[in-house]
Structure formats: C-alpha cells, structure tokens
C-alpha cells in the first residue's frame, strides 16, 4: 500500500521522505538494543565469573529457584512476544482489528508474567531467600547467598524493564518510545514492529539465570 498524502505530510521535518524516517527509526532501535545487550552483558559477565569461582555454591543455589515457575514464565513471555509479532504481521496486512487484539493479548500475557513473577518472589520471601527481609534466616550455605542476590538484582531489573516494555507508548514515554514514535507517527505498523523488537530482546535473556546451575 503506497503511503497516502496524509502520511507524507506526517513525516517529521528533519526527514526528506517517509522511507528515510522509517530506516532511521529502525537503526535507532537496533542501536538501542545494542546498549541493552551491553547493559546486561556486564551483569552476566559478573555472574559467569562467580559461577566459575564457586561452582558448587551456584549449583546448590540455583536448585532452590523454581525452575517450573521460571519455565512457565519463559513460555508466557515468549507467547506474549509471539502475540506482539503477530500484531506486527496483522498490521502489515492492514488488519487493524486483529492487530489490536494481538497487542492486547501480548499486554495481557505481559501482566501475567509480572503476576507470576510476584508470586515467585513471594515464595522466595517465605523461604528467607530475599536479601535483608523475610520470616526466616537465609537457609543455604553462606557462599550461595551471592548468587541468590544476583538473581534478585537481575530479575528485578529485567522485570522493571519488561514493565516499561508493556507501558511503551503510554502516557509516560521512555527513550525507546521516543525512537519508536519517531519511526512512524504516520504508520502504526512500523511503530508496532519497533516496539516488538524492543520486547523480544527481553525474553531471550530471561531463562539464563535458572539454567546457570547446569
């Protein structure tokens, strides 16, 4: 479908053509994702060093994590990614209703992810695993504590950023939204593709912590 006259006029003034605007937004989003890889990369590097220094402690600690909940949550996250990707496809085909429905499913699954995560944190709390708070003392050998703490730190940051992913485009714009918005005020489908890109990277980093114990 060729861009309409209205779409042309909606091109931001710094761009010569809608295509240039679209390319810029995609390059911006990929660059933004590269920064995210570097952000989590430092953390995973630290955890890898720790895994190498204290293999037994990490193995024991990771056995205390709820792999089933982590597994379900990974599935929920990937399913929600799929829904968002389908929304992008529907958008490309011009099926607006289906795009909106898929986006809602994606957002709903995202909320489900946060709910399940909260339940898992509650179980961890009851076991005394949370740093500094809880009804019981830390139940594992002391050198496992660091791994558990790193787990809370990493999943906490992940959940916070996943939450921002859900709210993307909402009333409180994040830098990622700004880039997505720059992509295509005039074309919803590009905007969705950009937001979807942003979402997917969160999902693939998620299971690492559960599996590090091997």
């Amino acid at each position: 479908m060729a861009p309409s006259a209205a779409e042309h006029t909606a091109t931001a003034e710094q761009f010569a053509a809608p295509e240039q605007q679209r390319e810029a937004a995609f390059l911006g989003m990929w660059t933004f994702l590269a920064t995210e890889i570097m952000l989590f990369g430092g953390l995973f590097f630290g955890i890898a060093v720790y895994r190498w220094l204290h293999p037994d402690a990490v193995r024991e600690a990771s056995q205390h994590l709820y792999k089933s909940i982590g597994g379900i949550n990974t599935a929920v996250l990937l399913a929600s990614s799929l829904a968002v990707a389908l929304a992008v496809l529907s958008g490309r085909e011009g099926d607006r209703r289906s795009a909106v429905r898929n986006l809602l499913v994606g957002a709903g699954l995202g909320l489900a992810f946060l709910g399940i995560k909260a339940y898992e944190y509650y179980l961890d709390y009851s076991e005394g695993l949370m740093p500094g708070v809880g009804p019981k003392p830390f139940p594992l050998p002391p050198d496992s504590e660091l791994f558990i703490n790193a787990y809370f730190f990493a999943t906490g940051i992940h959940a916070a950023r996943a939450d921002r992913g859900w709210r993307a485009g909402g009333p409180c714009p994040t830098p990622g939204d700004r880039i997505a918005a720059a992509g295509s005020a005039h074309r919803d489908r590009d905007r969705r593709a950009l937001l979807a890109l942003r979402r997917h990277r969160l999902d693939f980093s998620f299971p690492v912590l559960y599996l590090v114990g091997g």
Binding site: T35, E36, M38, L39, F40, G41, G42, L43, G46, Y50, P131, G132, E145, L146, N149, A150, F152, F153, I157
Partner: peptide
C-alpha cells in the same frame, strides 16, 4: 551501559549488601 550497570551494582551492594 556497562558503567550504568556497574553503578547499579555498586548501589545495590551499598544499600542491600548483595555481596558482588
């Protein structure tokens, strides 16, 4: 981003004593 994460770890270490 690496600095950002390192500072976040530093703050978490200082405030919660995560031990890294």
């Amino acid at each position: 981003p690496v600095l950002a994460l390192s500072l976040a770890l530093n703050i978490a270490e200082r405030v919660f004593g995560i031990g890294i």
